[in-house]
Design a protein around this nucleic acid. Structure first.
Lengths: 217, 217
DNA sequence: ATTTCATATTTGTGATCACTTAACGGCATG
DNA sequence: CATGCCGTTAAGTGATCACAAATATGAAAT
């Protein structure tokens, strides 16, 4: 029957929020392939909830562009056209260059150390050919930097772009088998150390753009 | 009882979508003041639906940042801090300068004519001191231009920024009683005619930034 | 008159159900 | 062998309900 509302002061999130977060992470990290279909009853079964919270989670994800809603109400992960991918890449570039630029004056040594640690994990994932792990650690690298920008609305929008690209990125990085560690990340870290704003902007732009250019060509 | 699913090929949207669109327009146009509270039962009563579609509409709007969801589940329009307003203004500038720049090479005479017609309506709303009408026609001016950019994802994000600013803009433009017609819109149109990209970028940036700077100072 | 506490009302949450429509499969027909 | 049609199944939609938490109300005490 029911049950509800347990999250006032304690930390237990509402069921729909738990489902939302779990699905969102999966999509952003590329756990789900492009075009994969989801059903409300299926989601409910998996998370042991009824259709109602499953529907709310799906609605939120559709609103963020993480899921595609067909005219008949069916939901699936989006299959992006090349044009759309280019556009989202341009958005990433626009937003993330600005975020990095704003983070630069606040970037102290502790942040740079953390970025280097995360970057080691990224390199490890590349070596292990772990596509999902690569996406996850790569996003963690970027998010850690952008958090310093103190621009929550801008970061939130950047995350919705990542979300829209999630399934496609998985398909991309799952295909191409590269073994080189991320060169642009080193450039980003170097520019942060040097306080070199033009260099930082260029490095972020290159890092964001390069991977997605491979897909469309 | 029930009733459902009527929108396959014909044009009748689902109830939750109708509610969503109606609320979204209200919020974007500044029909609702910042901090105003909404209840699911109240929305359902107004639109003659049950709580279920009302909840879905609200969830979507919360996901877009158009509504604020308190920790106890109450929803209201957001009350923005000055910092947040500055950030959203920076986002508008970033996105809309890019959109205008992309629209420039595709802007033909028919578009410029339409912009001038819309701009006349804007001036009329300013003369009538109609705050809501001003916001509506002003957004129509910008949207008409940006549609030419052929960048739907970018435009969608710009719209979510407008949404977040909606209630606050109403509070702003409701206060300041200006009577001058929009100067920057003329600059935008002139730059479009001349094919002057730097001039266009500057004019859009000024138009987007000026109004919101008044509020925070 | 103000504060405190108990009660009542409001409100969001999640489960369930009836209903309609879209997707799927098999069968007949060309 | 392909194609169109019909019945079955799967899936989304919206109404309703029980419940718990939050808020509002009012009374009592200092």
């Amino acid at each position: 029957m029911m049950q509800t509302h347990r999250s006032p002061s304690d930390a237990i999130p509402a069921a729909h929020d738990r489902v939302f977060r779990a699905l969102r992470t999966r999509i952003m990290h590329g756990d789900i392939a492009p075009g994969a279909a989801l059903t409300l009853r299926g989601i409910g079964r998996e998370f042991d909830v009824s259709m109602t919270p499953a529907r709310e989670a799906v609605r939120r994800l559709v609103a963020e562009g993480a899921l595609f809603l067909s005219s008949s109400g069916r939901v699936s992960t989006p299959e992006l056209t090349n044009e759309r991918i280019e556009e989202l890449a341009a958005l990433r570039s626009l937003l993330e260059v600005e975020l990095a630029s704003r983070a630069l004056p606040r970037a102290h040594m502790a942040l740079i150390d953390r970025l280097q640690t995360i970057n080691a994990s990224v390199a490890e994932m590349v070596a292990k050919q772990d596509a999902v792990g690569y996406i996850r650690t790569n996003l963690e690298f970027h998010r850690t930097l952008y958090l310093r920008a103190q621009a929550p609305a801008m970061l939130a929008i950047a995350e919705t772009v990542w979300l829209q690209l999630g399934p496609t990125m998985r398909a991309l990085y799952g295909r191409l088998r590269r073994t080189e560690p991320p060169h642009n990340h080193r450039l980003i870290i170097a520019a942060l150390k040097a306080g070199d704003e033009p260099g930082l902007r260029l490095a972020v732009r290159s890092d964001v753009t390069q991977g997605l250019h491979l897909l469309t060509s």
